[in-house]
Design a binder for these strands. Structure first.
Lengths: 333, 333
DNA sequence: TTGAAAGCGCTAACAG
DNA sequence: CTGTTAGCGCTTTCAA
């Protein structure tokens, strides 16, 4: 046979402690109304047996799973930051997180389906790519909180993307930059708003004729490609705002390799303040999404809905803030 | 009340189809011995109600969870690659993956405990930091497969670390390099073997007196620090082997910023072949761990143990291979 | 081929 | 404070 030891059940513990199952149940859950002596004996019996409650049975009986499903893209640096913070946010909520990763070979549909089978009570989806109607349909079955994407028919927690880019442009303009470019995120969630924020801020600073948007993307490679395009121009920009940190990392790399000094010759601003930006050797000036607030809101919203509180789907917009590091400086002239 | 729809149960489907619960159960599991007509009616009823089996109840009854628990460090690039591959490896195994992340605020103990509560049938642990005795104790309770770390008392799937570094040194020596340094991984899993492999290979090439090991680590920042140390030496090496890709990325960055051309002046070799190494703008020569093989072995080993097949704990050592990209070249003189 | 009944490990009423 | 009972949604005998 296997080396698998049969796991002790609540009944085993009860037998060993010489009490009823109910008492053991109460003790294990830390409920009140058990004499200290009994509590003590039960604890000892449980420890001796190495008893661990079976969450499946527990949840089956109580009709709930106390599980919050999280769908995330495991290769996205920012999602990783969000998941990390979600664990913290959920810590004292009475709910556990059930992770389901989207990988190149495992799509969102699959990731979601497995969470549904686990009877998660709500879904928190990070930057989902699922079409809005499908998302809305899903939201009729269980509470769905969408993070980092704007969509109707579900609860949304997102960053004020346009405002973030405004802050970036304000910062650069304040440093004297005029030729400020934007490497965008294409069709990625939030990209349209960030483009708009950039454009509006440029106009607000009277830099309308310097508006310059280049196709980028979410990845390092896409950033690198865009940066090369920029370098080959007759009059390259003195500052670049980039869709996200990951993409900005690619941009930085190309600049440095080309011998362009950052920030002396070109300033670069990212977006997200993901762990990438904080790396000492990158030290990227960026627009920080307020991850603790966003994740706290996401968990709170999910629970509200589970409790049947919220009625209409709401969108919470969280303000980002500028974090100045080493990739921005005064314009050289 | 909440917008939560009560999920239909097997009983609901049975009622609607006008058959017994047993039949529905058989149909849902695709078992034989049900007339086509009945099968058809049950299918329709299930679809009409949007029925989805409750995995918890199913597993409770059958006494199994068919779950493989995975403990991983969400911030480690290589773990992310492994998790991605594990999903693929487990796809047709009849088991599902249950992910539990280790974060700065959620340690391995906590990550493991939640998996145990879910009654995972086996644990796959990626580069665990848990002390060997604790790991061995855990392995007496359920099958534990350790990936990317060598430890007694559990099943181990790991890369031939020393051999990997030998390949790196062979490659560099073949390019004419003599002053080859090694930035190590300190106490990280595998670091000792990689150090040893480096040292042995250097001696094998008659380069014993050039052996030069510098304290590094697993992260970009640690690599950057080590690289700076190296640059400040009177006679810097012409080639550097680095503990892993992540650390090598930090090394590269410092070199490039210092105006050192790679590979013209200094060659760099990483380890892992994580997605970082493949980024076009990094294009790091590296020692590739055979991720598909390792993950396939890990899943297979876990299942063997669950089935009670394997007896003694075994260590499977997978051979890595050199992937030549753009960070290595002939020595300049 | 189909159905009835038992029970997985646990919690929630309720009674003592 | 403690024990008894019933049953969560499902699978699994066992009979029909």
């Amino acid at each position: 046979m296997a080396n698998r030891t049969v796991r002790p059940t609540l009944t085993d513990v009860a037998a060993r402690a010489g009490v009823s199952k109910s008492l053991v149940s109460l003790v294990m859950r830390g409920e009140q109304g058990v004499s200290p002596a009994t509590r003590q004996r039960v604890r000892e019996a449980a420890d001796a047996l190495g008893y661990q409650p079976d969450s499946r049975a527990r949840l089956l009986r109580s009709g709930r799973s106390r599980l919050l499903g999280v769908v995330f893209g495991i290769e996205h640096a920012f999602h990783v930051d969000l998941v990390t913070a979600l664990y913290t946010a959920a810590r004292d909520s009475g709910y556990e997180l059930a992770l389901s990763a989207v990988t190149p070979e495992r799509d969102e549909t699959e990731a979601t389906a497995s969470l549904l089978q686990d009877r998660c009570e709500a879904l928190i989806m990070l930057g989902p790519r699922t079409p809005a109607p499908a998302l809305a349909r899903l939201a009729t079955r269980l509470p769905v909180v969408v993070l980092a994407r704007d969509v109707r028919g579900a609860d949304v927690i997102r960053t004020a993307d346009a405002d973030g880019l405004r802050q970036a442009v304000d910062h650069l303009a304040g440093l004297g930059h005029r030729r400020i470019a934007h490497i965008d995120g294409g069709r990625a969630p939030g990209a349209a708003d960030r483009r708009r924020g950039y454009r509006e801020a440029m106009h607000a600073h009277g830099l309308g004729r310097h508006v310059h948007i280049i196709a980028g993307g979410l990845t390092e490679d896409e950033g690198a490609t865009a940066a090369r395009t920029l370098l080959h121009q007759s009059r390259p920009p003195t500052a670049i705002t980039v869709f996200n940190d990951r993409c900005a990392t690619g941009v930085l790399d190309v600049l440095v390799r080309a011998g362009t000094r950052v920030p002396e010759q070109v300033s670069v601003v990212g977006f997200d303040d993901s762990h990438l930006a904080r790396l000492a050797h990158i030290s990227l000036t960026t627009i920080a999404q307020d991850v603790p607030t966003m994740t706290r809101l996401a968990v709170a919203r999910a629970i509200e809905r589970i409790d049947g509180l919220a009625v209409a789907h709401r969108a919470s917009v969280v303000t980002p803030h500028l974090v100045i590091r080493s990739t921005t400086g005064p314009v050289a002239d």
